[in-house]
Amino acid sequence: MIKAPQDAAGGGLLIALGLVGVWEGAALASGSLGHVGPGLLPLALSVLSGMCGLILFAGAFRTKGSKLDRWSLRGPACVLGAAIAFGLAIKPLGLVIAGPMAVVLAALADRETRWTETLIFAVVMTVFCVGLFRYGLSLPIPIAPWLIGS
């Protein structure tokens, strides 16, 4: 019987990571101790990670531990989705589109969000960021490539 589901899951993930590491690093030369190759450390660390995972996993059957936490869907989906959307939109569409889009998408994560407030806030924040980053700090971030060319 699994007595500590959280540890069992964490251990399982570490084992999986170790296996991926060993698989991916298999083609790299380990070299010798006198001349360590590029593959030695990744291999050693993957094995260590897998071993830690095994110990954690085995321990989960012996001692009682925390249950698995519930994962929420809305928060991560909206916030991470907003970041991904920003990443996809920034080069072709520029900050004037990617900025408000990221703010509004992220705001969806919170049930307390008020729509008019968020829309106004998104526009204000974007204008502020364009001023600060592009003009204040002269970072080469695209503003509106489809309109002004950069």
Binding site: F86, G87, I90, V103, A107, A109, C129, F133
Partner: peptide
């Protein structure tokens, strides 16, 4: 209120990451 704070944090993070070396893949 946190409902205004976290979208700003996210936007700053995105712009910050993009600007470290102008790579959109870093944001993802």
């Amino acid at each position: 209120p946190y409902r205004l704070m976290f979208p700003s944090i996210l936007l700053f993070c995105c712009i910050g990451i993009y600007s470290t070396n102008n790579e959109a893949s870093n944001v993802i």
